[in-house]
């Protein structure tokens, strides 16, 4: 069974993308397809980022050591959906209008923060291989990968700032993130 666990999780993580393709093929993306695709990919990028941050707390609270095997995969899937989200912004939202994109990044806070999160995740994805862990050394690797906490905060802020009025969904993510980071802070304080 455990032999198949990784491929199964791998396939499950692709489901949102498969669903998006299916909807596009059968029903279309509605009146404003560029916005629909961008929002959908952004939603899942944030969900996977929070899921990656949930692996360690779930493993420790649920006494479920096998979960650790999926942390890298889920983290990389978060990066994968972030890349798709950013790509849809460049290609569909702005159709390669680099001047407009640059203006957006500089002027609009939620896009500034969103792009910062994307940039933060780049070195984490690049150093995700076993060889890179070895090269960096476990201690330095761990230190670097704490950036993901900041990326998580940035991701939730990005959503919060983007919303015009209905802050209920970003608030839900903020509560989840507060729990995931609060758990770590609590453990650290107790150890100290």
């Amino acid at each position: 069974m455990t032999r198949f666990a990784k491929p199964i999780v791998f396939a499950l993580c692709l489901l949102p993308l498969a669903w998006l393709a299916h909807k596009g093929w059968t029903a279309g993306f509605g009146a404003h397809p560029q916005e629909y695709v961008n929002r959908f990919l952004g939603d899942w990028a944030l969900r996977f980022l929070l899921l990656a941050l949930a692996v360690t707390p779930l493993r420790q609270i649920g006494d479920w050591p096998q979960l650790a095997r999926f942390r890298r995969m889920i983290g990389l899937y978060a990066f994968f959906y972030v890349v798709l989200h950013v790509s849809s912004y460049v290609v569909a939202t702005h159709f390669f209008d680099w001047a407009a994109i640059w203006k957006d990044i500089v002027k609009r806070n939620y896009i500034t923060v969103g792009m910062a999160v994307f940039v933060m995740l780049l070195p984490l994805a690049a150093t995700s291989t076993a060889a890179m862990v070895k090269r960096l050394g476990a201690a330095r690797w761990k230190k670097l990968h704490r950036l993901v906490y900041l990326a998580g905060i940035g991701g939730v802020f990005h959503f919060f700032m983007m919303v015009k009025l209905d802050w209920r969904e970003p608030l839900l993510y903020a509560v989840l993130l507060a729990f995931l980071l609060g758990y770590r802070a609590f453990k650290r304080l107790r150890r100290a």
């Binding site: 569909a92 939202t93 159709f95 209008d97």
Partner: peptide, 22 residues
């Protein structure tokens, strides 16, 4: 006059192709 959330210089016309300039 730019809006803090959206550029007002360009727009997306509903019904335009998915891959098209604003």
């Amino acid at each position: 006059v730019d809006h803090p959330r959206w550029t007002q210089a360009t727009e997306r016309r509903l019904g335009d192709p998915f891959f098209s300039p604003r």
